[in-house]
């Protein structure tokens, strides 16, 4: 876990830096309170920087690495994340009804289910149920896409 802590510590230090830098640009106004809109963020940013520093120092100093991480199926994980991001990008254009079944089917396949019926039927069924409950009953306004609503 040492290397992970080192990487995380450096990333968090960078985050704290960007956050603190951004907090300098907050308009204060004359109507604000005594502490102002930047005080609390700067307190948080500074604390985060200190803790991230501690994480880095600890990772460097600690010799032993007692808990090796279990292996993760990183490829599968990124495949699913890629599907989700693709979905979020495409859905406003093609509409909820067209975008959702392929996503659900693809996730099911990625997780190892291969029988066509078991992949396609639930993907369509879940989409329709979600559309009926959220879109019709609860009045959620989904992107319609070329299919339109009904």
């Amino acid at each position: 876990m040492r290397r992970a802590d080192l990487v995380a510590g450096v990333l968090l230090l960078a985050l704290a830096g960007v956050y603190l830098q951004q907090s300098l640009g907050i308009e204060r106004g004359f109507a604000s309170d005594r502490l102002g809109p930047a005080f609390f963020p700067q307190l948080l940013g500074a604390t985060l920087a200190v803790l991230a520093g501690a994480l880095v120092v600890r990772a460097v100093l600690k010799r032993s690495d007692p808990t090796p991480l279990p292996p993760a199926r990183v490829g599968l994980l990124w495949a699913v994340v890629g599907l989700l991001v693709g979905y979020a990008v495409v859905m406003p254009y093609v509409g909820f009804l067209l975008a959702t079944p392929p996503l659900l089917a693809a996730v099911t396949v990625a997780l190892g289910l291969r029988q066509p019926l078991l992949v396609v039927a639930p993907a369509l069924g879940i989409t329709l149920v979600l559309y009926a409950v959220f879109g019709r009953l609860l009045g959620v306004l989904f992107p319609r896409g070329p299919l339109g609503g009904w």
Partner: peptide
């Protein structure tokens, strides 16, 4: 089955 459950939860 777990693949169906996970994709269903994702959709939800």
């Amino acid at each position: 089955r777990r693949p169906l459950l996970l994709s269903g939860i994702l959709g939800l």
